[in-house]
């Protein structure tokens, strides 16, 4: 747990220090990828809470979800279908769902 928080802090610091920023054209894709990653993390926390956490599933899910979300939005942009909002809604829904499950688990434990 401590290690994970340390990693988060280190990554954040790194992100602030490097001089790059996302070009405006890709900011939409990046934000949806970020949301998918957040969803994966919450999903992982829930799995840990329920006791069936598997690091392989967690890590592969983290990257594949982010890439797939960005890819879907990219394809949607080119097809004239605004999948951005669809992904936003679906991922947001899942995050809140996971949050609810985590809370239930914590309440039951204590």
């Amino acid at each position: 747990m401590i290690l994970a928080i340390c990693g988060l802090a280190l990554g954040g610091a790194l992100g602030f220090l490097v001089p790059w920023s996302i070009p405006v054209a890709y900011s939409k894709l990046f934000s949806i990828a970020l949301l998918a990653s957040l969803d994966s993390v919450f999903g992982g926390l829930r799995a840990a809470g329920e006791g069936n956490f598997d690091d392989k599933i967690f890590i592969s899910g983290f990257f594949s979800n982010a890439l797939l979300a960005a890819f879907l939005v990219y394809v949607g942009d080119h097809l004239g279908i605004d999948l951005y909002y669809v992904a936003l809604l679906a991922l947001g829904f899942r995050i809140f769902n996971n949050l609810g499950r985590i809370r239930q688990y914590l309440l039951k434990k204590h």
């Binding site: 747990m1 994970a4 602030f16 992982g44 967690f58």
Partner: peptide, 27 residues
């Protein structure tokens, strides 16, 4: 919570997440 196995890889993932968060914030 049970994070016994693969702690380092989870830390790495968290680092990536933090990095993305920071970049997005800056953008």
């Amino acid at each position: 919570m049970r994070f016994e196995k693969g702690r380092l890889s989870i830390a790495c993932v968290c680092m990536v997440l933090g990095f993305m968060l920071a970049i997005q914030f800056r953008t």
